[in-house]
């Protein structure tokens, strides 16, 4: 097990290295000049030149690349080219908001999705099933930003139940939850759709398995079979695959952050692109890559823990 983990981590290193190079290249070929973006169009040419020099943009590309790798190796994400804030500090401030949003969406997804999926599977090809299936298809189809706007109009303006501005303060949990509810629900409905579909098909798969037929044949009550045999076995893929969707949710959180004017990693990235903030942009992209790699690693490991047929050697 331990050697497997070490090997998986070692395997990730070359990939991350290529990712870093890719990020570096992507950020360098962005059109526009970060120095001009930082100073505004009224700034004098000399000031722009001075800032370019200071930002290290006049150095040859290979040197910039080495500096980039070097500072990353020291765990230093650099200083934002625009605001002068250490990027790490910015990330530390916004990342919890993205994670909290994603986590909230996953909770919503399981809370709503599993009951829907079960009822769909149990009452398949009835009205309940059709309704749930259309509902989950809707969840998959509606763009998060559109849903967000509709929810704001309904629950902030028409019925002013929730605040619309910004994210809450972590030190005030109740206020924080009030701020989190609608964004979490917006993203959560997407997760609900995934979970409903997974639960339904996983249960239907399990029902066909021999042990379930045997249980039925033995005359065990349907309800007992369902909850004791089917659900327990069907949950394995639901829980592990759920992790995979965390990646999708982290990506989609950008839109929710924009609509609800919440801070977050995605918004940091979009802002960095608009302002040509090279240092922030490359760091945020690296962080995304690391998060995805870590989630994938975690899924692999959890898979092995749950399913004893998989051996790590």
């Amino acid at each position: 097990m331990f050697t497997y983990v070490v090997r998986r981590i070692l395997q990730s290193i070359p990939i991350l290295f290529v990712v870093l190079t890719l990020v570096f290249v992507v950020v360098r070929v962005l059109p526009g000049d970060p120095a001009v973006a930082a100073l505004g169009d009224y700034a004098s040419k000399e000031a722009v030149e001075a800032l370019r020099e200071k930002m290290g943009l006049n150095a040859p590309l290979w040197l910039q690349y080495i500096r980039f790798l070097g500072s990353l190796a020291r765990g230093d994400l650099g200083i934002s080219a625009i605001t002068g804030y250490p990027v790490a500090q910015q990330v530390v401030k916004v990342l919890p908001h993205t994670l909290e949003l994603t986590f909230c969406a996953i909770v919503f997804g399981y809370l709503l999705g599993i009951p829907l999926g079960i009822s769909s599977a149990v009452k398949r090809n009835t009205f309940v099933d059709y309704f749930n299936r259309v509902f989950s298809l809707l969840g998959l189809s509606v763009p998060a930003f559109y849903l967000g706007i509709l929810l704001i109009l309904l629950f902030c303006i028409q019925f002013p139940l929730f605040p619309v501005v910004g994210a809450g303060d972590f030190s005030r949990p109740v206020e924080n939850l009030r701020h989190l509810f609608l964004p979490g629900l917006t993203l959560g409905l997407l997760m609900t759709a995934y979970v409903t579909r997974m639960t339904r098909s996983s249960i239907l798969d399990t029902i066909r398995e021999d042990f379930v037929r045997t249980a039925y044949a033995k005359g065990v009550a349907e309800r007992v079979v369902l909850y004791k045999h089917v659900l327990r076995n069907a949950m394995i893929p639901i829980v592990t695959l759920g992790g995979l969707y965390a990646v999708v949710l982290i990506g989609s959180s950008v839109m929710v952050e924009i609509v609800f004017s919440r801070p977050g990693l995605g918004k940091l990235m979009v802002g960095a692109i608009k302002q040509r903030d090279y240092t922030t942009l490359q760091s945020v992209m690296v962080i995304y890559a690391v998060i995805v790699v870590m989630i994938n690693l975690a899924i692999d490991l959890i898979y092995g823990l749950i399913d004893p047929r998989i051996k790590y050697d």
């Binding site: 605040p163 619309v164 501005v165």
Partner: peptide, 16 residues
């Protein structure tokens, strides 16, 4: 707040 609609919502709810 780069979205004008969000700003306008905030003004209406009195948060801004």
């Amino acid at each position: 707040m780069p979205n004008v609609s969000s700003r306008e919502f905030g003004l209406r709810t009195g948060e801004l």
